[in-house]
Design a protein around this nucleic acid. Structure first.
Lengths: 149, 149
DNA sequence: CCAAATGTAATTTAAAATGTTACATTCAGT
DNA sequence: ACTGAATGTAACATTTTAAATTACATTTGG
């Protein structure tokens, strides 16, 4: 596994928040139970998602998270960038200590820079195609199928 | 960092092997020095690259690795698959223990499966575009520029 | 004021990547 | 056949990263 599970946990959380958008806010405790991870992890996600303008979080009694813009305008890429992006955190790692006196070692970083950048860009381009709205609708449909039988 | 450095180390090794293709084989000791990592790591890479038909490795005195097919026919994708591919090792991880009684938790894996597959495919499609030949030529050019001045 | 919630620092735990050691095996050259 | 140079690989150690946990300060609705 290469990209850690934070992105998937964030998507899961946002679908939950979106499903409950009309009725109530969701707190970190509830989301932690549904995702199977720790409330503190969720609260850290909250902060990152809020910093990126995806959700609004309110503290205190009755507080929690709700969407800050329409689910049609939140893509997997938005979520990925909110949650994974530290400045310059490439998908493919490069070994740190190549021998600078070797003709390959001296330039390997420079040579890999462009291909790796394009590979990452291709991935991100595909991530744009999926919105929170689409994912939420699929969840609704799957649940309807089961209960309809 | 998400995809570990093995892929970059493998590319580095293969450029070295390609540069020396006419004169001699390269052993794990030499490559380890150039890449700045351990000979055992390189020998494990050798095995994976050999299993994928990218190199041939010979044991014993004077042994080492050489290319098994033309560098034009070895892409970053070939190298990536040789080195990273364990059966079903997706780029993006999914959290393991969502609550199965929750309408989202029950279907989150199913819903993410297609987007994640397509994201991975987009990445691999881009990886196909870069051959070992191209990368080696770039290394040669960068070295020529410096010594030409 | 109280209870319920987030914010966040500090620590611990667990998992994964990487490095190291050791030794068996292979093979070219003599 | 012997020797030395190389890979193959298992076992273990170390380092790094992710994730969970604990603790407590802060905020806020009622």
């Amino acid at each position: 596994m290469r990209i850690n599970t934070k992105c998937s946990i964030a998507i899961h959380s946002l679908i939950l928040i979106n499903l409950c958008a009309d009725t109530h806010k969701l707190n970190s405790e509830t989301i932690a139970r549904s995702t199977g991870c720790n409330p503190v992890i969720i609260r850290n996600l909250f902060r990152q998602l809020q910093d990126s303008g995806i959700i609004r979080v309110t503290r205190g009694a009755g507080g929690g998270a709700c969407l800050n813009r329409p689910p049609e305008e939140i893509s997997i890429l938005d979520i990925y960038l909110a949650v994974e992006a530290e400045p310059d955190n490439p998908v493919i790692g490069i070994h740190l200590n190549p021998e600078p006196l070797c003709p390959v070692g001296a330039y390997i970083h420079e040579v890999l820079e462009e291909p790796y950048r394009n590979i990452e860009a291709a991935m991100q381009e595909e991530m744009k195609k999926y919105s929170l709205h689409m994912l939420t609708e699929r969840i609704k449909r799957l649940n309807a199928e089961i209960s309809g039988q």
